[in-house]
Design a binder for these strands. Structure first.
Lengths: 187, 187
DNA sequence: CGCCGAGTTGAACTGAATCAAGAAACGTGG
DNA sequence: CCACGTTTCTTGATTCAGTTCAACTCGGCG
């Protein structure tokens, strides 16, 4: 599903908003391992994944690769530490599969917000969704064991479990690859 | 600062929005330990703290009291697992100090969103702020030690450090009270 | 084939939890 | 304003989940 179709599943889209969107949206077909964004830069775009899988990650103080977020079909991704404030990022954004992505620049999004109240509403709703997910994740991190976190991840994101590598999932859950391997070995 | 004054620091407030807000806003002066919201109920209101301190918490599966969030002056609080979806909550909201709070119901907020695009914008910006903080918290939880988390908490929220109890802060950071006490003992 | 990344398995180690006991601070009523 | 009970904080000893380091297996691909 492309971005405009997705938007229509959430709210009414006026003809003029649709026209403006089609005018500015950039659609790309990109290969696995492609980097949508690199550390140190200001992230200019927000991406909607029509097909494929992406992850954001960063290198922690010991140089370990830590997955921050996965984004699959019909979801958005961007360097959250950079895009909204338009400041330099610590994150990378990479594709884990060949993907079709649609994107808008920060300025384009801001202009759409200013021009179309429905777009502002959409922005609020998307933020609400991702905020809710992030809160759930904090709760999981706060006082669940590694095993509990893995199980609820497996329940909520069965597709990503299949498609992403063990190492990427482990760091996303805040555990090492070895621990995740052992958890999985049991059941 | 009351809610309308705060709103004006973020964006332009039209006279008619101000009038509507003054019409629906409820202001209360409430004592320490007062419960703004209880588990099991649907949380109807979002609260702006003019003065005082609140925390949200829940009881985990072992019956331990876990602090989810603190809210002090010029910030908002509500049962995040309930208010936005208007579904039953696992959270409590309690005051840790005598407080002055302003509040709006869910319906009032929705009506304001529908009537005033600037209010929708404000909602988006507030959500963005709290989302950003929550993402930072996930990062901290993911691969920082207890000590590192305590230090950055102490840096970012020195006032809450003074005003909230050790046990509340410990569970917020995802550690036990004993561990926090030992961390603090060192420096 | 043989290499290489991804996953598994084992053994030793460690940060933080748990359990338990005191010490301080706090507030409420006499 | 003090005495007493309650809550909050500290400190110690023990335990355990998860990390670390290291070796090994497996499946794909040049």
């Amino acid at each position: 599903m492309d971005f405009v179709s997705y938007l229509k599943t959430i709210l009414e889209v006026s003809a003029s908003l649709e026209a403006d969107l089609n005018h500015v949206l950039r659609t790309e077909n990109l290969p696995k391992k492609y980097r949508l964004h690199n550390e140190g830069k200001i992230c200019r775009r927000v991406y909607f994944i029509e097909k494929g899988l992406a992850r954001s990650f960063y290198y922690d103080k010991d140089g370990r690769d830590i997955t921050g977020w996965f984004a699959a079909e019909n979801s958005f991704t961007t360097a959250v530490d950079s895009f909204f404030q338009q400041q330099p990022s610590k994150l990378f954004l990479e594709l884990l599969e060949d993907s079709i992505v649609h994107s808008l620049t920060f300025d384009e999004v801001e202009n759409l917000y200013a021009k179309f109240p429905e777009m502002e509403r959409f922005g609020r709703l998307m933020l609400l969704e991702v905020f809710t997910k992030t809160v759930n994740r904090v709760n999981a991190m706060q006082f669940q064991t590694a095993q509990e976190r893995y199980r609820s991840f497996a329940e909520n994101y069965p597709d990503i479990l299949q498609r992403a590598s063990l190492g990427h999932i482990a760091s996303f859950l805040g555990i090492t690859q070895e621990t995740l391997s052992r958890i999985r070995a049991k059941g």
